[in-house]
Design a protein around this nucleic acid. Structure first.
Lengths: 356, 356
DNA sequence: GTGAAAGCGCTAACAT
DNA sequence: ATGTTAGCGCTTTCAC
């Protein structure tokens, strides 16, 4: 195959030194316009592209971003974090970075769990999406590399992060139920270790109180192990068997909301006539279930993009100012909370609002 | 932060030269057992990891794999290719590679469209998933780097590939319909440029003939621009308006099958009592629509894994033997083709059969 | 079996 | 404003 031109070929062709060429490549000042043009011309004619690895060695900047996901999240059928990753990938490409993805198991001691791209110095910064152990983050911090968390925070660790406006979203959801005339509104949560779930629970409580409605612990379920739809199913089943089925349910995410709907259907409760259901996240499936699930849309790709943008700023500026970005949400009214029927579109088209 | 140990530190600690250390790191022969142990001990004690970039510079092996996806595929709501990517990523990690993802637009001239990781020599091999232009592949071939195609092939270009057993899958699907007593079976296809769709169409024709059934061009729709569910909707609508609604439909993928179901519901045709529907792919949604869609499951993650495995073999062996892998499929019977009712599970759990 | 030395392609002082 | 030079951390001949 054709020989790949190096910086030396460019220098020779332009009758200049390689350092001058390097200055041009890196857009440094102190190069005369004439020289700059000459170099650019040579680069063009040769079809030259700087070698990533060599650049990295010399500058200790790899042009890569590490993306860490807990294995649990990765295996979820619902591509919530996959969407975040894709958004990150998209923004990274725009900024001329590549994203190296890896997953970590939630359990193992972090010592063996340090991602290879860190050990091998193959990334300039780290994005962590979703829940990971504090230990892992502590050991990553040793590497003295910018870190941005997406959809997670630590109580005792201040790190740049991109999070959902959970409080605002819950407020929209609960107020919507109140406006529809519901006063008996239950909560189905899951793993309270996740700060998003915690925030959603307290916002639920706060909004009920703001609205002058009672908070009844009998219709608040939080003991579940995770946030899959089975938990929604079992949580509302428990309320039902305890003869305390609320008139409306706010579930802390769509998966659990769909689990609730599943149970309600199985016991022939009509949605929303007998029980209204609201979720959170707006996962793909929520617009496809019947009735369509009213929920709070989270802009997942956008979160990934924001995370990368912030990370790249940190990498380039070489400062570690902590920045917390709170991403706004959008309330999506569908049929699971509104008795009057919308025109039947059958299976709805893919949700609008692609971010790109 | 703590200084990162280099190969020199290891050599010093083991009282050996860096070249000997390098031999051990790379598992080369001609090193005495005693020396090998000494080096390993030093590596352990220092917590040494070779620097990716430096290795790459010296050996011209980056440890990265490039993954190319057409932008169209990437933006699809349905994560068919996303699944393939995730499978690839998983296998790559196992083999100590990282995957660099990029998308290419289907249209643009490939000259500007050559992925950056190729220009910058940042990958050791390339995976291409789905349909891309032949031009693009031709220009990638210039880089003299192993290539594996996933779910695509070119008539005039012999490249290693991992493809679906389309013929086998269609045969299962159509025979199933025949066994259920259907004799009037239509076909809804899409973009015939994709070899998978072409194969599915010819297998459909062949299976009908094998079964002694007539092939009626009036209930074969192939003119559509792509393979989204709108095409399924419009294709079957056209048959219906032409007074030639078949008793069963084989759609070339699940998205179009779901589009068919959507239309059938909108004109109050019962599924499967009035019209049975079979799809292909087994996308997530197919087990969630009502009735559940009978379809041919494609092991998407598995395809990604196989692609990477093959690619890494090619990289390591430095030979370019063409290998075509045909991945078997699995037939999934659900309610869209079987009149007798299965017990109602409400919304079914996530499809079984995770690959990992 | 082990070591010395060259060099992969580039950046970054430092000189000029 | 441009050139010289010394590495970055490793692999890889080639001696010994």
């Amino acid at each position: 195959m054709k020989r790949i031109p190096t910086i030396e070929d460019v220098a020779r062709k332009a009758s200049l030194s390689i350092s001058t060429v390097s200055l041009v490549i890196n857009n440094k000042k102190n190069v005369s316009d004439k020289t700059r043009e000459k170099v650019k011309k040579a680069i063009d004619e040769l079809g030259y592209h700087p070698h990533r690895g060599a650049r990295g060695l010399a500058s200790s900047l790899t042009g890569n971003i590490g993306f860490i996901l807990s294995h649990d999240h990765f295996s979820l059928a619902e591509p919530f974090y996959t969407k975040i990753f894709l958004g990150a990938e998209f923004a990274a490409r725009d900024l001329n970075y590549y994203v190296l993805l890896t997953t970590v198991s939630g359990q193992k001691r972090p010592k063996n769990g340090i991602p290879r791209f860190l050990l091998e110095r193959n990334v300039d910064g780290i994005i962590i999406a979703g829940k990971v152990s504090e230990q892992l983050v502590t050991s990553i911090e040793q590497f003295d590399i910018p870190i941005v968390l997406i959809d997670y925070t630590f109580p005792r660790k201040d790190l740049s992060n991109v999070c959902i406006d959970n409080t605002g979203g819950v407020r929209l959801a609960v107020r919507h139920l109140v406006e529809q005339g519901y006063t008996d509104i239950g909560f189905v949560g899951g793993d309270l270790e996740h700060p998003s779930i915690r925030e959603r629970l307290s916002a639920y409580r706060a909004t009920l109180e703001e609205s002058g409605l009672p908070v009844d612990e009998k219709i608040i379920s939080t003991g579940e192990a995770d946030t899959g739809h089975e938990n929604g199913f079992s949580a509302i089943a428990r309320m039902h068997k305890g003869n305390r089925l609320p008139a409306a349910i706010f579930a802390a995410n769509d998966a659990m909301a769909i689990g609730c709907m599943q149970y309600l259907k199985s016991v022939s409760q009509r949605i929303p006539e007998d029980v209204a259901v609201v979720g959170f996240d707006d996962i793909e499936m929520s617009s496809h279930v019947e009735p369509g699930l009213t929920t709070v849309r989270v802009f997942k790709e956008e979160m990934g993009k924001l995370g990368v943008k912030r990370l790249v700023e940190m990498i380039k500026s070489k400062t570690n100012t902590i920045v917390s970005v709170r991403v706004p949400v959008q309330f999506m009214v569908r049929e699971s909370t509104v008795v009057q029927h919308l025109p039947d579109e059958g299976l709805r088209a893919a949700p609008a609002g692609a971010i790109y």
